[in-house]
């Protein structure tokens, strides 16, 4: 299994090390500080503008990774709420035993101060218990709640969220049923086999398939199947997808009541 955010959705140690948003261990001991786990160059910069203390810099272009100035950062948590990617956390290294981790939380129900919760790591695995010490949800955060939990110090680099409460409904694994046929055109109920047969009979275009099989002539007018038909043509004839032009479109291109047109024509 390859590591890294592209493969697992989790930034690797290497990626975090090479980013510019991780504060020093010494700074974490001085009070809460932002930990910016943003390791991909995406067009996004609200963190820069939102920090009241100018502690985050992105600059131009807006795909730059954010730089944290750990001295300017006060650990206020505004950026935690405002990052659209929810990639910013706060860590507060309180003592040898205890640490606080702050994270964005957008699930219902919200936790309350004092709640005991399951603290989870970046993969959603429960690593320890946590106690909710702060829940902030002012209007300015636009419903991204900022939750702080107290955890054993040893887990401060792992814990990045808490388990949400799920309304459980048991789900029985059903027995595997007889396989349904593989439909390509949903409206006219044509299988891959039907399309391939038409190609064997000489169809080389989407229109050719349409005339032979009615694929694309049903109610949705090819909106679901056309690209699948193009793919089958491309695979079977060994020609690039670009060659398969869409079928000829004629009015009406959307489902309408023909009665309306007929009625209105009579009046004219």
């Amino acid at each position: 299994m390859k590591e890294g955010v592209r493969y697992t959705g989790i930034a690797s140690e290497e990626e975090l090390k090479n980013s510019f948003g991780i504060p020093s261990a010494a700074r974490m001991k001085q009070g809460p500080v932002a930990v910016i786990e943003c390791v991909q160059e995406i067009p996004c910069n609200p963190c820069e503008g939102t920090c009241p203390f100018g502690a985050i810099t992105i600059g131009d272009p807006i795909t730059n990774l954010p730089h944290l100035n750990e001295t300017l950062c006060t650990g206020c948590g505004t950026c935690v709420a405002m990052c659209p990617g929810q990639a910013i956390f706060l860590v507060n290294d309180l003592s040898e035993q205890e640490a606080e981790v702050t994270f964005p939380f957008e699930y219902w129900p919200l936790p309350q101060v004092g709640d005991e919760v399951d603290a989870v790591n970046r993969a959603g695995e429960v690593v320890c218990k946590g106690r909710v010490t702060k829940v902030r949800n002012p209007v300015a955060y636009k419903n991204t709640c900022v939750v702080t939990i107290s955890i054993p110090n040893a887990f401060k680099d792992d814990v990045r969220s808490m388990k949400r409460v799920i309304k459980q409904t048991p789900m029985e694994l059903a027995e595997q049923k007889e396989r349904a046929s593989q439909l390509v055109c949903r409206c006219e109920e044509l299988t891959r086999g039907d399309i391939e047969k038409a190609i064997d009979e000489g169809a080389t275009t989407i229109d050719g398939i349409k005339r032979r099989t009615r694929a694309g002539m049903g109610l949705c007018q090819g909106k679901s199947c056309e690209r699948l038909v193009a793919r089958i043509l491309s695979e079977k004839l060994g020609r690039p997808l670009a060659e398969f032009l869409p079928a000829t479109y004629r009015a009406p291109v959307r489902p309408i009541s023909m009665g309306v047109i007929a009625d209105n024509c009579e009046k004219e």
């Binding site: 949903r186 409206c187 049903g218 109610l219 949705c220 909106k223 679901s224 489902p255």
Partner: peptide
């Protein structure tokens, strides 16, 4: 068949 696109495109 049931809901498939939910925005009036597919007619399912």
């Amino acid at each position: 068949r049931g809901v498939f696109c939910a925005i009036g495109r597919c007619t399912d």
